[in-house]
């Protein structure tokens, strides 16, 4: 296959959009948290939890959309737990985040083992089916690639606009951005910094959990251990790459997914002489490279990682 033919291939673009979806959810979620000044390293574990509970909900006979809600709810729960430590207690966000990831992951695995004891091959469910959008999906090539996707994928793209609108055009968004830049100024306005930060972390965590759920109830039809496989950490890198802007986050996620799709196709066609493990390294190496390129001029939210304690300066 000629390298450039790939870009004219419908399957390639469809795969790119599909693979971008969990990254969009995760990156948006992390972005919301960080805009409020809280680095949420619970993301990897929260995505695992979302993947597990959504799948389990459907497996136990639940409905797909309710499963998305359940995942979001569990995400908020862990987000709340994170904010007790990071917002109210003002503890190190790095270590609490890793703690939340370890806790959420182990609890998910434990619950999975408890609910399905002695299962060796993961049972399957019927996941979301592609939903062709009327008229748009009839456009040749583009229709098939972009408008015959899972409903959750459309949701992810719509949410980018919603998050951008809320962040930049509403009082709530202003409050979220301000607690990430100058919490003292927000407090002076009579707004509770703790509540705004907690809210942002909870909503962001819900996004992450839905991103995880997408993997088990849309792309795949089963839950595997270790299936998040560093996607959460890649999202943390993408937020920096995106300079904390939702639009750029979307761009970053799609670009990243495109690289991933290229990598898989090259791996399949060239095979033999380059070992497949080196292709699997690509996403992580790309993330590091993206960080190196962008970090120089990264405009971090000023109060990111700075705990706020009322009555202290």
């Amino acid at each position: 296959m000629d390298f450039f033919d790939m870009f004219l291939n419908v399957g390639f673009w469809a795969a790119t959009v599909r693979m971008a979806t969990p990254l969009i959810f995760g990156t948006l979620g992390e972005l919301i948290c960080e805009r409020a000044g809280i680095l949420n390293l619970g993301i990897e574990g929260i995505m695992t939890t979302g993947a597990m509970v959504a799948w389990m909900w459907v497996y136990q006979g639940g409905d797909l959309w309710t499963a998305v809600l359940v995942a979001a709810l569990f995400g908020m729960l862990f987000g709340y737990l994170h904010s007790i430590f990071s917002v109210y207690m003002g503890l190190s966000q790095h270590v609490t985040g890793i703690g939340i990831t370890l806790l959420a992951t182990s609890l998910s695995y434990y619950s999975f083992r408890m609910l399905l004891p002695g299962v060796t091959t993961p049972p399957k469910i019927i996941p979301f089916q592609p939903l062709p959008i009327p008229l748009l999906s009839d456009i040749p090539v583009i229709g098939e690639a972009f408008f015959t996707q899972s409903p959750l994928t459309y949701l992810a793209f719509v949410l980018v606009g919603v998050v951008a609108y809320i962040l930049y055009r509403t009082p709530v968004g202003l409050a979220v951005r301000m607690v990430g830049e100058n919490p003292m100024a927000v407090e002076v306005q009579g707004i509770d910094v703790y509540k705004v930060r907690t809210g942002a972390v909870m909503v962001g965590s819900a996004f992450m959990a839905v991103g995880g759920a997408f993997l088990t109830i849309s792309v795949f039809d089963a839950f595997y251990f270790d299936m998040i496989n560093g996607r959460g950490w890649i999202c943390v890198a993408l937020v920096i790459f995106a300079s904390w802007r939702p639009g750029k986050a979307l761009l970053g996620a799609v670009l990243f997914a495109a690289f991933d799709a290229i990598q898989i196709r090259v791996q399949q066609s060239s095979a033999s002489f380059i070992p497949y493990q080196f292709f699997l390294m690509m996403p992580y190496v790309f993330s590091i490279l993206a960080l190196i390129i962008m970090s120089r001029k990264a405009a971090y939210p000023k109060a990111l990682l700075v705990p706020f304690r009322r009555g202290q300066r």
């Binding site: 390293l41 790095h94 496989n229 560093g230 950490w233 890649i234 943390v236 890198a237 920096i240 390294m281 992580y284 993330s287 590091i288 960080l291 190196i292 970090s295 120089r296 990264a298």
Partner: peptide, 14 residues
């Protein structure tokens, strides 16, 4: 280069 070490160390694990 001011690159955050949390993410880079995590990614290097993989």
């Amino acid at each position: 280069l001011n690159v955050d070490e949390v993410v880079t160390t995590l990614l290097l694990n993989f």
